[in-house]
C-alpha cells in the first residue's frame, strides 16, 4: 500500500475547476515529482493534501487513513511536513528559534536536540547563522531554513512546493542535492516544481500535470526521454 494515495481529487476556486480528478501515489522511500506549467494545479494539489483546501471524503489517504476531515495543523503530528511556496520563515525570529518552532508538537527534548544537530549537518550554513534573524538571510538560506524547519518535525512525508523558486542556479543545485540526502536518510518526498529538469534528475518517479489533469506518469528516467516532456518542459527540440 502506498504511503500517500490521491484518488480522483477535485478542487475549485469559486467557479474555476482547478483540479479535475487527479490520482497519484507516493510509495514509502520515494521521491516523486509533480511537474507542470504555471496554473497546472501543482500547488493546489499540495494545498489539498496538507488540508488547506478541504478535500472530498476518500480522495486523499495517508497510510490508509482518510485525510478529508483533518485540519492543516493536525497533519504535522501525523508525520507530514510542508515547506510552503515562497518559503514562509518567521522573519523576525532567529534561525534557531525557527528550527525550534518546527519541532513545536514534539516533547522529546533529547530527540529534538539530536535532530537539530542533524539539520545543522545537512545545512552547515544554518549552524553558522543560528542567531541571525531569518528575515535578513538570502533567499537560498531561507529556503534551507524552511526545509530544515520542516525536518525538525521528523516527518515521514515531506511536501516541497517550488524549492528552486527565485534561487541562483548554484543554490538550486545545492538544494536538490540536499533533497536527495534527506530522502536517503529515510524521508519520503513529494516535490512540486516548475524546474522540470532538476526535479526529474532527483526524482524516482514523476507526474506531469496540465490544466488540472495528469497527462503523463512514469519513472523519472522515462519522462526525461519522453519527447513531449522534452519539448514542453525541458526545452529540448
Amino acid at each position: 500500500m502506498a504511503l500517500l494515495e490521491v484518488n480522483n481529487l477535485h478542487a475549485y476556486y469559486g467557479n474555476i475547476h482547478a483540479l479535475k480528478g487527479i490520482s497519484l501515489q507516493v510509495e514509502e522511500g520515494e521521491i516523486v515529482s509533480l511537474i507542470g506549467g504555471n496554473g497546472a494545479g501543482k500547488t493546489t494539489t499540495l494545498r489539498s493534501i496538507s488540508g488547506l483546501i478541504p478535500p472530498k471524503p476518500g480522495a486523499i489517504t495517508l497510510g490508509g487513513e482518510d485525510l478529508s476531515n483533518h485540519k492543516a495543523h493536525e497533519l504535522v503530528s501525523r508525520g507530514v511536513a510542508m515547506v510552503p511556496e515562497g518559503r514562509g520563515v518567521f522573519a523576525k525570529l532567529t534561525v534557531l528559534e525557527n528550527l525550534e518552532m518546527g519541532a513545536f508538537h514534539r516533547t522529546d527534548k533529547d530527540g529534538i536536540i539530536a535532530d537539530l544537530n542533524s539539520v545543522y549537518e545537512l545545512f552547515p550554513r544554518l549552524a553558522e547563522r543560528k542567531k541571525q534573524l531569518a528575515g535578513t538571510m538570502s533567499g537560498g538560506e531561507q529556503q534551507m531554513l524552511a526545509m530544515g524547519r520542516a525536518m525538525m518535525s521528523r516527518p515521514t512525508l515531506l511536501l516541497l512546493d517550488e524549492p528552486s523558486m527565485g534561487l541562483a542556479p548554484v543554490l538550486v543545485e545545492a538544494i536538490f542535492d540536499t533533497i536527495t540526502e534527506i530522502n536517503k536518510n529515510g524521508t519520503t518526498v513529494l516535490l512540486v516544481e516548475q524546474n522540470a529538469h532538476m526535479a526529474l534528475q532527483v526524482a524516482h518517479r514523476g507526474y506531469v500535470l496540465q490544466t488540472g489533469t495528469i497527462v503523463l506518469s512514469d519513472s523519472a528516467k522515462e519522462l526525461q526521454r519522453n519527447p513531449m516532456v522534452q519539448k514542453a518542459y525541458l526545452g529540448i527540440e
Binding site: H73, S77, M82, P84, G88, E100, F104, H105, R149
Partner: peptide
Amino acid sequence: RRWMALREDEDVAEAMGIRL
C-alpha cells in the same frame, strides 16, 4: 510560543502544527 508564531505569521504557524 504559539502566540509568538501567530504574531509572526498565521499561515506558517498553522503549517507548524499550531491550532489557530
